[in-house]
Design a protein around this nucleic acid. Structure first.
Lengths: 214, 214
DNA sequence: TTACTCATGTAAGTAGTTACATGATTCC
DNA sequence: GGAATCATGTAACTACTTACATGAGTAA
């Protein structure tokens, strides 16, 4: 249930509406924890019901109201409890690697296309994270500044360092994915070179299709 | 919906019962795609309803029956369609990295404990994968042997190479996780050295807890 | 006879996805 | 007047988790 804790952490930087929280998920937390607004609004209601946050109704325009949420003491305690608790790794479930295990049912060209997309995707998010790290080190994201302004000066180094360390880990991970995809592309070149199979034909077919029945 | 495709791929190696499929998830596919039997049985029923697999009722003991599933032509086609289709990366959702971003709400000791567990976990699964790679290279897992016996000799190299490549990628990934955790441990040593905060006290508290209101 | 493995499920709940829906405000 | 953005939801669905449940066969 990390969505809940991501929201608690965001709210410690200051009261926010559901909309603003959803925005933060798109900019700062994005690529680290994804959540659409359709998941955020009901979760905020549940958290309010559980006493972890409280809402203040603010006017918007002439008629409308918006609800700004802030942490309660119970919410702050829950945040600290979560941070202290050791995280058990979720079970592995990786669609790209699973599929890569069965590329023999596809052609060289198809496998190549997938490795290229994998490489490009991870390159792109790696650059995103690197830019984020640079901003964190310059301490110039709005959220980080708010957080630092509320924390004792003695804690500033740790606050920044933990975030930089996490994003650096993600960059390393993305780098590993890019390298994996590139090794995959070389592998295909090698296999293709040793093979009489044309580049657009599968290496093998599922058993039921080889009987020549129909 | 990769569970479905993992099952299709397993069934191409030969007809299996739900129980045997669940076992395969625990040995060969495990640590690559996790699925409990409570998810497998109903999925098999749905796949049968969709015409991707068909069941043969076999006697077991005096009274009971078991159902051995095998691929239909439609199932084989679906397997090939899935392999050809490019996989879009699932949105990032990593509880360990998310939490690592907020370690300032915990003590040095707590952060250290988490990095140690992270390192130990990934070391363990790395060794598991490495053993699996060795078995694949020796071509001595039952599933691989069955698969090779059904495929043309020209495809054998690719079948083994794709699997080895996928598991090698997972090993590299685990290695990156271990390195990340170890850098995390050094970071904590460094922060602790520069800090007056005792090792069992949080670096900072959520805002609502600092007012002195209790 | 006890324990283990084989074998197959259900049921209740949580988390996340995708799509639909509505209306206000602000800027051009 | 129209488009973008602010703002807040619901509804239906799929995927996955955790726990409960049952019974048969087999080897010590």
């Amino acid at each position: 249930m990390s969505l809940r804790h991501a929201l608690l952490a965001l709210l410690d930087a200051g009261a926010m509406t559901g909309y603003e929280l959803a925005k933060q998920f798109d900019v700062s937390v994005a690529y680290l924890w994804h959540a659409p607004h359709s998941q955020i609004y009901p979760e905020l209601r549940r958290m309010e019901a559980d006493g972890l946050i409280e809402a203040e109704a603010l006017p918007r325009g002439e008629r409308g109201t918006k609800r700004a949420y802030s942490l309660t003491v119970a919410g702050a305690a829950e945040l600290m409890r979560w941070v202290a608790e050791t995280e058990t790794s979720p079970p592995v479930r990786d669609p790209a690697y699973l599929k890569a295990t069965y590329y023999e049912y596809g052609s060289f060209d198809q496998a190549r296309r997938q490795f290229r997309e994998h490489r490009d995707h991870h390159r792109a998010i790696m650059e995103h994270w690197q830019r984020h790290i640079a901003r964190l080190q310059r301490r110039d994201t709005p959220l980080l500044q708010k957080r630092l302004s509320l924390a004792p000066a003695a804690a500033h180094e740790a606050i920044v360092a933990y975030k930089v360390h996490a994003y650096e880990g993600l960059v390393e991970r993305a780098r590993a994915e890019v390298a994996w995809a590139e090794r995959g592309l070389s592998l295909i070149d090698r296999l293709e070179h040793n093979s009489a199979v044309p580049p657009d034909a599968p290496a093998t077919l599922p058993q039921v299709l080889t009987g020549g029945t129909e």
